[in-house]
Simulated scan of single mutants.
Amino acid sequence: MDFEAVRTFVAVAEAGQFRKAAVDLSVTQQAVSKRIAALERHLGVRLFTRTPHGAEPTIDGQALLPHARELLRVADRAVASVRAGRRPLRVDVINSRGAVSGLMRDFHRAHPGTELDVLMMLDIDAAVAALRSGAIDASFRAVADPGRPLPEDIASVRVLDEPLQLLTGPGHALARARSVTVAELAGHRIWMPGIVPGTEWAAYYDDLVAAFGLTIEATGPNFGSDALLDTVADTPALATFMSEGTRLVWPAGHGLRRVPVTDPVPVYPHSLLWHRDNPHPALTVLRAHLAGVSPAPDAPGTWRPGWTRPH
Rank of each mutant, 00 (worst) to 15 (best):
S179M: 10
H311K: 12
A31E: 11
R257N: 14
Q30E: 14
A127R: 02
A227P: 04
A80L: 11
P88E: 09
I195W: 08
R90S: 11
I136F: 04
F140C: 06
P163W: 09
P295C: 13
E244S: 14
N222H: 13
I59E: 15
A210C: 07
D92Y: 03
T262Q: 05
H53F: 14
V285F: 05
V293S: 04
T246N: 11
A288S: 15
T235V: 05
L272Y: 05
T168E: 08
G253N: 11
D206T: 13
T181K: 04
R189N: 10
A202H: 08
G61T: 04
A177M: 07
V259W: 05
L248H: 13
A129E: 12
F212W: 05
A237P: 05
A55G: 11
P279L: 05
F3D: 14
Q17W: 08
Q29R: 15
G306I: 10
R69W: 01
H188D: 03
I216M: 00
D153I: 03
H280I: 00
V196E: 14
A227Q: 13
G292C: 13
P281Q: 10
M120I: 14
A177T: 06
R276L: 12
H111E: 15
D92A: 11
T215S: 11
T199H: 06
A110V: 10
G187R: 07
E4L: 11
W250S: 08
M120C: 12
E56D: 13
